[in-house]
Design a binder for these strands. Structure first.
Lengths: 246, 246
DNA sequence: AGCTCATGTGAACGACTTTTACATGAGCTG
DNA sequence: CAGCTCATGTAAAAGTCGTTCACATGAGCT
């Protein structure tokens, strides 16, 4: 019953040729299925068709593989946030909310990455590269917050952008962790996680004095707003950022 | 040299007498140290001075021990939130913020419970008792939100309490997960997690139209507010719910 | 053709989880 | 108090993992 392994070896020769990548992919799949805790180094090796010792030629230990995945995750995360932000087009508030949705979408569509990044218990601060990658991702949110803060309605004190960024991050992460994960969209909600986050952010921005109907109060500093009929669906209903209160 | 085990046995006899509780305590300590992932059934047994097989007389498997801890955690969580809410005294907004701080305090002071409850990857929905306990805890937040929603300033549409509760929960959980965990207060922050959350909640409430200076707008429905000099430190500075913007 | 070194193998170690057959003794029953 | 029973503990064993080590292989360079 070990002709399977022989078979495999016959197919690909003694050397795998691309083991590092294969291990990363295998691990990604396993983490998506069973979570970072349930993922096993040996399993990844098996899935790649190599012995249990082979992975040690490419990763110091199981943790390093996990870190590599988290690192890659932060990079993809950053690029998705960057794309969503799109340098604040067509207007800052719209783009800002798109970033929020992108956060949730990432958590939903890349559960393995999200898990490795935020739920694996990895000591992020122990790995400089990882920390840097994480920071780069956060900086997207920060940059967006900065642009938003600059639009603060005149007359009111300008909110610190850093604080706004942290607030938005915590909201996004909270919603994602609690309500938006793969098979784990555990609680029954009166609204989708996306709607929940969108309303949350809108209420928050309104609390800062921002007009949340997509019509910026400042003039000139902001490109002309999208015509109302173009902001399909995600526009704020007249009553407020939530459905009809009953 | 296995006289240690003999020693222990001599001290307590063949039967432990209170093994279940001892295991729970041991596990709690281990999880606090090394996280739910690093915690080991065998270690707990060792710590309690029994063989590795003994725990199976009290827990079906490692997961059941973890679940028991999470369950207990939710119960303590509920009671702490209940105490913090204190039925909305002295006024709803103050009590509401106290709940937020209690959330963070729990995450900080009971990392083992928090870990088991929210970060262990336990399938909460697979265990009805656990799910119920979790729901009971959340219901505190929901009840508080309901009271708050009832105070919504007249004229504006009344926000759905359930949505508010989910929002507050996500903020609290987001801040706790990202910034407020034991050795893992990873990122450098311009303010403490408590301040961060407090500002976040205040801005949010203001976004809903609530007066956030602790002086309720409605009259009669709310007990008289605390005199300003009594709300030490946690009162809202005149400029807004954050420090001086520079 | 031959060398070398990155890459993979198998065996082995200790730790962990879980099951099984057996041991102990606390507490009830007569 | 004697005897029984059953909850609770033990040791041993099987299977899995992580990790290391000595050794094998063969890709690519000289």
């Amino acid at each position: 019953m070990s002709w399977r392994k022989e078979q495999r070896r016959a197919e690909r020769g003694y050397h795998h040729g691309n083991l590092k990548e294969a291990l990363l992919q295998a691990a990604l799949g396993l983490i998506a299925e069973k979570g970072a805790a349930g993922f096993t180094f040996a399993d990844a090796a098996r899935m790649a068709g190599v012995s249990a010792a082979a992975p040690y030629r490419h990763f110091r230990d199981r943790d390093e593989l996990l870190s590599s995945i988290a690192q890659r995750g932060f990079e993809q995360f950053e690029s998705r946030l960057t794309a969503a932000w799109d340098d604040g087009r067509p207007d800052t508030v719209t783009a800002f909310e798109r970033v929020g949705r992108a956060y949730l979408a990432f958590a939903r569509e890349e559960p393995a990455f999200y898990n490795a990044m935020f739920e694996s218990g990895l000591p992020v601060d122990a790995n400089p590269a990882l920390q840097a990658a994480s920071e780069r991702a956060f900086n997207i949110i920060r940059a967006a917050a900065e642009r938003l803060a600059a639009l603060a309605p005149p007359g009111t004190p300008r909110p610190p952008a850093m604080m706004m960024a942290l607030h938005i991050w915590s909201m996004s992460h909270g919603v994602a962790s609690l309500f938006s994960r793969g098979d784990a969209a555990r609680r029954k909600l009166p609204m989708s996680p996306d709607e929940l986050l969108e309303a949350e952010v809108l209420i928050y921005l309104r609390g800062l004095g921002f007009p949340t109907d997509r019509r910026p109060a400042g003039k000139g500093a902001e490109p002309p707003p999208v015509p109302p009929e173009a902001s399909s669906g995600s526009g704020v209903p007249p009553g407020g950022p939530w459905g009809k209160p009953k």
